[in-house]
């Protein structure tokens, strides 16, 4: 029986969810206040970078609808979806 697969993304880097969880952890660490001030500053900077990254992910969104087709030579390719047929 295969184990449950972890969420993965296709082009590397943390997934949105992973980055979100890391941000949550950073906030929690800052809130606890028992880390040295230098570490707090580093944590804050990391948190700010995560917020920027996540915002970037959300801002970069642009709807793209493709259709998968197999060419005569057997290769798979995508082309922009022309729209639904009447239906």
């Amino acid at each position: 029986m295969p184990a449950k697969k972890k969420e993965t993304t296709n082009n590397g880097g943390p997934s949105f969810e992973e980055a979100m969880a890391e941000l949550e952890e950073t906030v929690r660490k800052l809130d606890e206040g028992d880390v040295p001030l230098e570490e707090s500053l580093a944590a804050f900077e990391k948190g700010v970078a995560l917020v920027r990254l996540l915002h970037g992910r959300l801002d970069a969104v642009q709807e793209k609808i493709d259709e998968l087709t197999r060419a005569a030579d057997g290769s798979l390719s995508t082309k922009s979806f022309e729209g639904e047929d009447d239906g």
Binding site: R57, L58, A60, V61, Q62, E63, K64, I65, D66, E67, L68, T78, F81, E84, D85, D86, G87
Partner: peptide, 28 residues
Amino acid sequence: TSRSGAALHDILVTLRRRYAGARVVIRA
């Protein structure tokens, strides 16, 4: 799903309404 029919339409409309950031690849 079928190229024609309500299913594809419903899926595309719902995706657009909620989160239009993903790439959708249709295999009719």
